[in-house]
């Protein structure tokens, strides 16, 4: 057997592909589910926090800053382990799926708040002045005039960050969430062959290549000229 054949045998073994594709597909489905759930709740929470911070109520802003700094600084894996193994000891039992979703949502929310808040700050004062001078209230000016511009500014940094964080769904494998890496690892330990991991990699490509392309499209779409 040549080296090349041995390489194919241990990374792209057709028999194992056939045997494990349903597991991998099942894992991909779980990955997509968590990624979508994280995307929705993380961005919504981040947006909510950025809006709350706009009102510049000192204790509220301080709490948001602490939250953002903590969740940006700590590696998501640490948070996952702490919450998964720590919460039961205080009587809260969350499923592995819920813990993964919760942690990644909070991490994404922290980065989203940061990006949107930076966007809000960089909208020029004249925009507020114009809006308020026509009688719009603070909240109306924020929602209808400032936020649309802030979100456009936030989209490029946020797109990459969002992709990076949704890829962290792979961390779920350490607490036994049946996402694609977890399925692949199980298959690897049964078969003693790396083929299932390669399948998982292809699965990631299938999920995230379109997301990356969509991200690039969104970035271009929203990169409008400032008047």
């Amino acid at each position: 057997m040549s080296a090349f054949e041995r390489f194919l045998e241990s990374f792209f073994n057709p028999k194992l592909m056939l045997r494990y594709w349903p597991d991998i597909a099942q894992g991909m489905l779980v990955t997509v589910e968590i990624a979508l759930a994280v995307l929705a709740s993380g961005l919504a929470l981040g947006l909510g926090l950025a809006l709350a911070r706009s009102y510049r109520i000192a204790p509220v802003s301080a709490a948001i800053v602490v939250f953002v700094d903590v969740f940006r600084a700590l590696p998501p894996l640490v948070l996952i382990l702490i919450i998964y193994f720590g919460l039961p000891s205080v009587g809260v039992n969350l499923s592995a799926f819920a813990v993964l979703w919760l942690v990644l949502s909070l991490v994404l929310a922290a980065f989203a708040e940061e990006a949107i808040w930076a966007g809000i700050l960089s909208v020029r004062r004249g925009q507020w002045d114009a809006a308020r001078s026509t009688g719009l209230g603070f909240g109306q000016a924020l929602i209808h005039v400032v936020l649309p511009q802030a979100v456009r500014l936030a989209i490029p940094p946020l797109t990459n960050r969002t992709i990076a964080i949704t890829k962290n769904t792979a961390l779920g494998t350490v607490i036994g969430v049946g996402e694609v890496i977890n399925q692949a690892q199980t298959a690897v330990s049964f078969s003693g062959n790396a083929t299932p991991l390669m399948m998982a990699a292809v699965g990631y490509l299938a999920i995230f290549a379109p997301v990356v392309a969509l991200g690039a499209f969104i970035e271009k779409r929203f990169a409008w000229r400032r008047a």
Partner: peptide, 9 residues
């Protein structure tokens, strides 16, 4: 205003 301050979006 001097700088118009139209809403660019």
């Amino acid at each position: 205003f001097q700088s118009f301050n139209l809403y660019p979006h």
